[in-house]
Amino acid sequence: MREILYRDAIIEALDEEMRRDESVFLLGEDIAEFGGSYKTTVGLFEKYGKERVRNTPISEQGIVGATLGAALMGMRPVAELMYIDFTGVAMDQIVNQVAKVRYMFGGKAKTALVLRTQGGAGRSSAAQHAQSLEAWFVHVPGLKVVMPSTAHDAKGLLKSAVRDDDPVMFIEHKLLYLEKGPVPEEDYTIPLGVAEVKREGRDITIVATSSMVGKSLAAADELEAEGISCEVVDPRTLFPLDRETILNSVKKTGRCLITHEAVQRCGWGAEIAATLAREAFDYLDAPIERVCGMETPVPFAPKLESHVIPDKDDVIAGVRAVISGL
């Protein structure tokens, strides 16, 4: 199978969906001629024109409001919010409007929209351009939250998100954009709410999201040499959550480590840990471990940044701790 960049998989998904459905259009800051800050819309302006690939002012709540209003009229807008950190200035529209209109209006509102954004550390972007804020959105009923970890998943999940009738927060990772992976040339989708076992194993389940999936797979390779067999599960969609796949894996391995870049405190991993404690209690042979971002704003200095963000070695250490019962 051919291999393409994660960011090109995003472009392909948008391109295919725009070609398939005229109601799909894009809006966001610098997405037209410029092709997006992370080059995730390159070529689409030339192909679809300024009506369907719309540059916006730097107005995040205006962007989200415009996205919602257009969706209410039956369009399928896909907005780009340049950094997940910038959702802070659009939170009323996301949380109080987008997420709630369907319910508040008794189920009648049309809210087929996607808010694409990207998060994560690793480029010395510092405290306002490197956060992992997915838990904020998982916490809000009415939103679906997707976090693809590979080019293949990014394309298939984005196409599903565009076709979905609910608002989807589609959270990409800035470091993954330049990672290559196999992506089929033919049309395919990956349903929201279906996890994938990225690697099968016997001794411990690693539940990892976004950039931590790749790091966990690398950790699993190293641990294999020590005779520790890791199963790596990527939920891909944080809500709706494929609890089944995670539970089945943990029931099989009897141990679990949860890892994400976001800070540990009230992170999405806490929800998984609570679910496992309730649903898989009798199967657990060791306490559930979390390997997450340290509880600090993301620092600028590269050495500090790499210190506070979990890496492969942190995952390895975490796994060893669980296995050895230390």
Binding site: V64, G65, A66, G69, A71, L72, M73, M75, N96, Q97
Partner: peptide
């Protein structure tokens, strides 16, 4: 229920109407 909340949504609805 949010003061001013409907204003950007109105712009968006008008965008939908214009595109249609």
């Amino acid at each position: 229920g949010i003061v001013g909340g409907g204003i950007p949504i109105a712009a968006g609805a008008a965008l939908g109407i214009q595109l249609q």
